[in-house]
Design a protein around this nucleic acid. Structure first.
Lengths: 112, 112
DNA sequence: ACTAATATGCAGAAGCTCGAGGTATGCGAA
DNA sequence: TTCGCATACCTCGAGCTTCTGCATATTAGT
């Protein structure tokens, strides 16, 4: 049985922002990218991905336009806005702090 | 403005399980403990804490009984069940994988 | 009396997941 | 060649879980 972890709320936004930050991509490619780079640890179902993209677009973190993809099909390419770049930094910092705190707790023993 | 990060969904369970694993405690103390150990990064409001505790108890990961706390008041002391200990290990491993994957992505650059 | 410690419950919002539906392109088979 | 299926790509809606805030209650210590 595959050990796929559900994404904790909020984490997906961060991952998407980061992926888009590397260059314009369409939604479908984002999911593949994440799955590939994470060695299959992160699996993003479409039902999670697209709502997240629309959310981020509504909030002004992403902008999108239709272009032709590598395969000839029309696809919605997303890119980061200025606001999105700021948001990415905020969320990345937030994640770092959180990860560090949780790490601390997990390694905590009866000592303290 | 305080930089407190909301806990991503699911993370709270893990933190609670870990805290309880170190010895029986009551709910109120768990929140304090987490806040203190994490240098105020993690703040657990009561509205998040108690539902989580009940959840974990219903699922058989925690067991509870009333005892007198240090201050003389009655308090519900939680301890880990066998099932809870297994769950803790599962979730801890899950977190490690997730944290590593996200870390990877955050450090990803145009190179790949 | 007032505050701190400790617990419960509910209402609301946000996010994740599933599943169903829709279009276009390309490829293999009849 | 033409049918059909697979793949790439997007949208929407319902349902569930979880987080959070706020209100409420009890007992202990000052």
């Amino acid at each position: 049985m595959s050990e796929k972890s559900d994404l904790p709320q909020g984490t997906l936004d961060l991952l998407i922002l980061k992926t888009v930050a590397l260059g314009p991509v369409h939604g479908y490619a984002i999911a593949q990218r994440l799955q590939q780079v994470s060695c299959d640890v992160l699996q993003v179902p479409q039902g999670s991905l697209y709502p997240a993209l629309h959310r981020l677009e509504n909030r002004g973190f992403l902008a999108a336009d239709w272009q032709e993809s590598e395969t000839g099909r029309e696809a919605k390419f997303y890119r980061l806005t200025k606001k999105g770049r700021a948001q990415l930094e905020t969320e990345a910092a937030s994640w770092e702090r959180l990860a560090q705190a949780v790490g601390l707790i997990l390694r905590m023993s009866e000592g303290e």
